[in-house]
């Protein structure tokens, strides 16, 4: 890297009379390169260390303490984890909801987005219109989506109950019933996720060489075979991105449920527990950090397993 610009410098300055000056210039360029490189790389490394590794390690450290935001954290061993697993009634529901969220986005919303992308890739009439309307929810923030959920699901004033004609105190309580509200929230999260996945796959499909498809058809492959055996595998980089996005979206899910009812009563999620304990009036920073560490392990667990698999397959090729 460092050596490459050197010949360029010499060729662009052929009129340099003395060798000494050339050398001096070369050395000066090298130092500048080193400075530029160390600044660029150094800054990135510092930011990465401080904002990603620093905070992660701080969370892990704090999760073994009791800390209220000021003063010194007191070491309490694994008490926070013990309390989480044994006496906190929110933890296991939150954990299950996160897994459910992941399963729903991964098995329903993502395939649906892929299906939409494949359909829209076929140059349908009004395809731009469909694209935009499917993509529209992505442009809405989750806070707005959460507000929509309330408008749609409220027992007294909601749209669904109005359509069903159940407005006089006998409305179905989509927001307050802890067995129903999670599905309403998932439907809206999926609505948004589908559009997101669709637009990424649409771009991916456009980049697949049409010659590949033609060759497959000439060889007698059915459209389904063509897609699954030829097109889908060639989109592997896109698939990795989609998978990572889906896992991260599912595990960091927070804003939607927080807007609906503060992430309680059937809508518990790990990220909400982190916020409630750390940022909320309670200020149990050590305890919230323990939840954050579990969330970190879950997220990195999924992503690292998948990436190592991909890389191993790449190497064996």
């Amino acid at each position: 890297m460092v050596a490459t610009p050197v010949p360029t410098a010499e060729t662009t300055a052929p009129r340099t009379p003395a060798v000494r000056r050339g050398r001096r210039r070369r050395r000066r360029l090298e130092t500048r390169d080193i400075i530029v490189l160390s600044v660029v790389v150094g800054l990135t490394v510092i930011i990465d260390l401080a904002l990603i590794w620093g905070t992660s390690i701080a969370s892990i450290f704090l999760s073994f303490t009791a800390y209220e935001g000021i003063g010194t954290p007191r070491y309490v061993g694994t008490t926070n984890y013990h309390n989480l697993f044994t006496i906190d009634p929110t933890f296991w529901p939150a954990f299950e909801h996160n897994v459910l969220w992941l399963a729903f986005l991964g098995l329903v919303a993502t395939p649906l987005g892929l299906l939409m992308a494949v359909l829209l890739d076929r140059q349908l009439r009004f395809s731009r219109f469909y694209q935009s309307s499917l993509y529209l929810p992505v442009t809405l923030s989750f806070a707005v989506v959460g507000f929509l959920v309330q408008l749609v699901g409220s027992a007294d004033q909601g749209v669904i109950n109005a359509i069903l004609g159940r407005t006089h105190g006998n409305g179905i309580d989509f927001i307050g019933n802890p067995h129903l509200n999670i599905w309403l929230a998932l439907a809206f999260a999926g609505w948004r996720h589908t559009g997101y996945v669709m637009i990424i796959y649409l771009a991916g499909l456009k980049s697949v060489d049409p010659a590949l498809k033609e060759a497959a058809i000439v060889d007698g492959a059915s459209p389904v075979q063509t897609f699954f055996r030829v097109v889908f595998p060639t989109m592997r980089p896109i698939n990795v991105i989609i998978l990572v996005i889906t896992v991260i979206e599912a595990l960091r899910a927070f804003d939607l449920v927080y807007v609906i009812n503060g992430g309680r009563n059937g809508l518990e999620l790990l990220a909400v527990m982190v916020v409630d304990n750390i940022i909320g009036e309670a200020s149990r920073i050590g305890y919230g950090s323990a939840v954050a560490v579990i969330l970190l392990i879950l997220t990195t667990g999924f992503v690292i397993t998948y990436l190592t698999q991909i890389l191993r397959r790449e190497e064996s090729r």
Partner: peptide
């Protein structure tokens, strides 16, 4: 009790009272 309390905000309950519901 008015059913579905977990899905009702205090403003909505206050409004029910104001409307004599």
């Amino acid at each position: 009790y008015q059913p579905g309390a977990n899905g009702r905000t205090w403003e909505q309950a206050g409004t029910s009272f104001a409307k004599k519901e």
